[in-house]
Design a protein around this nucleic acid. Structure first.
Lengths: 232, 232
DNA sequence: CGGCCGTTTGAATTGTTTCAAGCTATGTGG
DNA sequence: CCACATAGCTTGAAACAATTCAAACGGCCG
């Protein structure tokens, strides 16, 4: 991947999109490329934060393991998303583990290089703040969801969020183009595999969803799902 | 309050602490003072974000109301805490409502002035990013809690967090120096007033806590509460 | 073919909520 | 100074949503 291709990736990244040519060029030039295979992790929760990444292709699932062994899926990440940024900026260990759910290609910067870029290009740090603010609001919304809504609504909302971020239109509806297991959904909504399975089964029976027994989920009647997600 | 006093407040604020003299002076000079009474709100969730605040004295509770009328307490804020920052930087409406639970005094900047300060003083925006990163981790931890732990543990952890932020040592243990109702705790932990009441009653019977019927909560046996908070 | 992993589904169990009633400080107006 | 109202809290009993336990199914890979 040459600098031109790197710039193309950066333009789609939330952190870099819309920034001046010279900032992109400076950033792209100092980026390394890293490739990881489906099923392997980029780094481990608790590792020292030495690098900062931008996803070029592929998809990652961000997992957080609790001291007592339970797992929470924080989110899925795709092209343009940032990985490890917060830990690098704060100088603390990575708080979660990104696992590739597809073969994935990323741009990499060392922590020091990233800090340099930030210092030299104020628009970059402005952008970073806006982005982090967005993440804060997202997390606050999720807390509100887990704290006040019941399971069925949370599952519906979660599926819709994933579809909104990564869904593709197909003949039968909107498809999520990478595998999302019942276990994943359980760990995103704070419930159990069993409850998710039952709920999805009911929706599939109602024709709202397609995708029994793994494969890829397809939303056939998005409108119904929205109704479930924000029913009073 | 003169500029000197303002600087003293800023030095204790997370955003300004440890910054160079000239940054503090420039910031303090352009700050206005605002006083609000116990029970009144600083602004309303949904209002356009026109100002950014730092708490000088007093205490606020940050509330978020859901579309269907339920309420979530995001956190309590005291001296040195920032209010409204994220919304100002992002140029979006305030996502929550800060309510004074004591008479409170704040420093105020217009959104435009705040952005100027940020642009002119890179160390300020660096500090802001580190701070926002901290908030992101805090929120992720809370999601993990609400999603995986049962109510008793969440209540224990929440009381300990409040005590850690604002607790004062007294003869009988650690006291939370402002009123925290059972309803508040319920809205922080995603449960009901009734469950909180039952749980606290049990703890008071066990001598872990003091503070039946409102008044101020005092933790008599912090160690026991920690055990409950992180029991496997 | 056989084993495995993710899933489905039923039944029993439980933590938590909901419903309902009563309590106790605190404050207010007569 | 005493009824009276109020706000916040407590507590029991019933109802329920979701989890846990248990077993079996189906697709896929070696």
């Amino acid at each position: 991947m040459d600098t031109k291709a790197k710039i193309a990736v950066l333009e789609r990244a939330k952190l870099f999109g819309g920034l001046a040519r010279d900032v992109l060029a400076a950033s792209a030039e100092s980026a390394q490329i890293k490739l990881i295979e489906k099923g392997s992790v980029l780094f481990q929760q608790g590792d020292e934060a030495t690098s900062h990444y931008v996803v070029a292709w592929g998809r990652l699932r961000l997992d957080q393991t609790t001291p007592d062994g339970k797992n929470v899926v924080l989110r899925f990440m795709g092209p343009g998303d940032l990985v490890g940024s917060v830990a690098v900026w704060r100088g603390v260990p990575y708080p979660a583990t990104p696992l590739a759910v597809e073969d994935t290609r990323l741009l990499v910067w060392s922590a020091a290089r990233m800090m340099d870029l930030m210092q030299c290009h104020p628009p970059l740090s402005m952008k970073a703040m806006v982005m982090m603010g967005g993440r804060i609001e997202e997390l606050q919304e999720r807390i509100q969801q887990v704290a006040t809504q019941q399971v069925e609504r949370r599952i519906a909302a979660t599926i819709l969020k994933i579809a909104g971020q990564s869904g593709r239109k197909v003949e039968t509806g909107v498809e999520i183009p990478f595998p999302v297991s019942r276990q994943d959904l359980a760990e995103m909504t704070g419930t159990t595999l069993h409850t998710v399975s039952r709920t999805l089964s009911a929706w599939i029976d109602d024709g709202i969803l397609e995708g029994r027994r793994s494969s890829h989920l397809t939303i056939c009647r998005p409108h119904r799902l929205v109704e479930i997600a924000d029913q009073a």
